[in-house]
Design a protein around this nucleic acid. Structure first.
Length: 296
DNA sequence: GCGTCCAGGTCTACC
DNA sequence: GGTAGACCTGGACGC
């Protein structure tokens, strides 16, 4: 029998909207069980414990965590679940703006807006790099390869996301040949080695006192992070000032708000200007509303 | 099955 | 600061 932990749900929280908020649920070691409405994740080993697979689901008042492992750090896993589901983030100011907007009033009605994230900023950074300049199928392949070839195995045979140490231990050739990361390969080596060597601490970005533009500059110092990747990572850190425009978001905007005609990014920026520091989340909710009609 | 073309975001060199 | 070309992969397409 798996061990079970319950976490009380915040008042304005939607489990379904959070786990399907963006593509992360589709990237290993996340797995979405659509039929049962469960999110599965393999938490990395910590504090002397090995990796542990956990299934997250919900009932009326709680989030249920079922842990399939002979030994695990229950506090660490519960704390990571709070982090990945953003249970402690405050969206009241965003909901006030969306309520006033009319077109985005559904966001507060459905308690949407929480973007699923990984337990560590390092994992989110690596996955963001895997989304740059390629199709979603290639992103999935690169992330699966990383987990399969470098991740530590949990008791049930699934694997956790690789640690910075594991990623720093292999060379550029490995990333090219085994991960199929192509020209991104040296970026992974550089990122992992900088974290292991202590020159870079991505986890510190969560609590950084820097302004968002300053933090974006810091993130862009990491090879492979341009405007899109930096702004995407900032969203996962909880800073929504940037739109993180990629080709998909642009084409959805043209279709929805510009009669399918291409327009400059500045026009997109103007469209969401009233959301101020929330505009990155506003565009994401605006462009993905239909996802939740398709996936009730 | 093979070859060609294209999309995708960032980097570097150059203006 | 802006721009062009290179980077690399997988998918689509034509043969």
């Amino acid at each position: 029998m798996p061990a079970e932990v319950l976490i009380t749900k915040p008042a304005s929280f939607s489990f379904g909207h959070t786990i399907r908020s963006h593509g992360w649920y589709d990237l290993a070691p996340f797995e979405l069980d659509e039929e049962q409405g469960r999110l599965i994740y393999v938490f990395g080993g910590q504090n002397g414990y090995g990796p542990a697979t956990a299934e997250l689901s919900e009932d009326e008042k709680s989030i249920r965590i079922q842990i399939h492992s002979p030994d695990f750090d229950v506090k660490e896993i519960a704390s990571s679940v709070r982090h990945i589901l953003r249970l402690d983030d405050d969206f009241e100011a965003f909901y006030l703006k969306t309520k006033a907007s009319g077109s985005l009033s559904w966001v507060s009605q459905r308690n949407a807006g929480r973007l699923l994230r990984s337990p560590t900023v390092f994992e989110d950074a690596v996955k963001t790099l895997c989304t740059t300049n390629c199709s979603w199928s290639l992103t999935k392949k690169m992330v699966s390869n990383l987990v399969e070839k470098l991740g530590e195995r949990a008791a049930d045979g699934r694997r956790a996301f690789p640690t910075p140490v594991a990623m720093a231990a292999v060379d550029e050739k490995f990333y090219r040949d085994e991960i199929r990361a192509g020209y991104r390969s040296p970026y992974f080596v550089e990122l992992a080695q900088a974290v292991v060597g202590g020159e870079l601490d991505p986890e510190q970005w969560l609590t950084s006192g820097l302004s968002t533009p300053e933090l974006k500059k810091e993130i862009k110092k990491v090879k492979g992070f341009g405007d899109y990747a930096a702004e995407n990572l900032l969203k996962l850190l909880g800073r929504y000032d940037g739109l993180a425009l990629d080709s998909w978001l642009r084409s959805r905007f043209y279709e929805q708000h510009n009669k399918s005609r291409v327009c400059p990014d500045k026009k997109i920026e103007r469209h969401y200007r009233s959301y101020a520091e929330w505009k990155g989340l506003a565009i994401w909710c605006d462009m993905t509303e239909k996802w939740f009609d398709e996936k009730p």
